[in-house]
Amino acid sequence: MAKYSLNTPLTDADIEKLRAGDVVLLSGIIYSGRDAAHKKLTDLLDAGKPLPFDLKGASIYYVGPSPAPPGRPIGAAGPTTSYRMDAYAPRLISLGLKASIGKGKRNDEVKKAMRDHKAVYFGATGGAGALLSKCITASKIIAFDELGPEAVREMTVKDFPLLVINDAFGGELYAKPNLPE
């Protein structure tokens, strides 16, 4: 398994070299967005209105951080469970989203969209919110302030540690449970 340092926005060439199990240290701008924000992003698309950020090459982090204490750019900021965004993800991927970051399984529609449009799904370590916050050097709310922890934030990350869970070729890292038939 390979280890890469990548910068956002991600390109097709970046995505094509990644395989499930690879370690990626991601740097640059990523956007936070979880349940309610995805609903609102989709509503904007339905209404033909512009999104608060350019989806082309973008990476969305499924996170609702805790409030930033004084002197820090952000509070704890680990991933939330990704399947709840499966209803929205294929459309965003078809419009240029290159990476989503979360934890847990994705459904077949999301995996197909990642194959069809060259995108990946990264896993970050769930329950390590304090540790992961160290890699976020700046954060500002750029949309949906009223959603509180669910607002869309533009985050600057430096060597954010990720694992490729699903690659753009159908590969998946998660262990299949050993269930007796």
């Binding site: 951080p65 204490p69 704890a76 680990g78 329950g127 390590a128 540790l131």
Partner: peptide, 24 residues
């Protein structure tokens, strides 16, 4: 590696008073 990260996370949370997990 996950256990190593979780122990580091616990130490950091205790030192900084950041929550262990953003989902409080």
């Amino acid at each position: 590696e996950i256990f190593r990260q979780l122990l580091e996370n616990a130490d950091l949370a205790f030192e900084t008073k950041l929550p262990l997990c953003q989902d409080c």
